[in-house]
Amino acid sequence: MSMPFQESIEKKQVRKNTMWLTSLADLLALLLAFFVLLFSMNEVKSDSWQDILNTLGYRLNTQTEATDDGLTAEKNVEIFTEQKAFDLDYLENIISEKIRSSTELNNVEVFKSEDRLVLSFIGNTYFPSGVNEVSPKLEDGVRILGESFRYVKNRVEVYGHTDPTQALNPQTLLDNNWGLSLARALAVADNLTKAGYSFPVRAYGMADSKYHELSDIQDKETRLSYARRVDIVIREAQGRRGGKK
């Protein structure tokens, strides 16, 4: 038998002996496709999906079409989710520690409610009846909190409140509770900005519209004192720069 012919036979035997590798590769590819299919049919966990959205910075905007039994919208309504900032539980611990260690904040109450953290400046030491000027104690308290707010990226709102007594302050021309409560909120918002908070602060005047929520306080003077307050509300959502909203 000639050498070239023998080498040809040996090469054919080698190719024949490695045919099983092709079958094995096909089997592995099928198994991979099968498991990918199973994974794609699996239910997506909402917590995991929320973490993905947080990582992406809420850059994904979903669209839905507004429908009604009567008139229908001609265009889709775009829904924007807001990017979250610092965790409210973390901020509550930081601010609570500030309050416990400062005498200027001994009449400040802090509590978490749903998606917000509320800081209430309560009592005549901050806002005497019928007065909107910021007291030195309130100014010092806001300055102390400003050391923490300097790094806070959450959206912040300020709500001014009054007691039901009719306001009358000829010096500032505040002859109603709505104007008085708004002036108080603006004064605190201005001091908060000066203290270091870098995002725009939304200020609202509530007058005595929330006075009924204090009905559980039996003592009238204490109830009136709680009604004269300013609430700093820290939201979960991140603050936004830009013009007035």
Rank of each mutant, 00 (worst) to 15 (best):
E10Y: 07
G57T: 01
A183T: 03
G242E: 05
F35N: 07
N93A: 15
A73I: 00
V230I: 01
V77G: 05
D216F: 10
G146H: 06
D216S: 14
D208V: 00
I52H: 14
F35S: 10
V110K: 07
T62D: 12
V44I: 11
L32Y: 15
V158A: 02
V230E: 00
A207C: 01
Y58I: 01
D190N: 14
L37D: 06
L117W: 02
R229W: 00
E236R: 15
R150Q: 07
W178V: 08
G141L: 00
K98N: 11
L32C: 13
A189H: 02
R59M: 09
S113T: 04
I217S: 05
V134T: 06
E104Q: 12
A85T: 02
D89T: 12
P200W: 04
Y197D: 05
H161R: 11
E213K: 14
S209L: 06
S96E: 08
I79S: 07
H161P: 03
K75F: 09
L31D: 07
D69R: 13
D89M: 05
A187N: 14
L173V: 03
L31I: 09
V156F: 03
S209K: 10
F34C: 10
V233C: 00
L173M: 10
E157G: 05
A203C: 01
A227Q: 00
K75W: 07
L186W: 02
L145H: 02
E221W: 05
N124T: 09
R240Q: 14
T64M: 11
Y90S: 12
R59K: 15
G70F: 10
K220Y: 09
V152K: 01
T72Y: 09
E82V: 07
V158I: 05
S46G: 08
I95V: 10
R116H: 11
D69A: 13
S113C: 01
L60I: 14
S8E: 11
L24E: 08
R240D: 08
K137H: 06
N42P: 00
L88F: 05
E236V: 06
Q6E: 13
E7K: 13
V230T: 04
N154P: 03
D140G: 08
K137R: 12
D219Q: 09
K153D: 11
R150A: 06
F121P: 01
A29H: 11
A185H: 00
S181A: 06
K12Q: 10
Q50F: 12
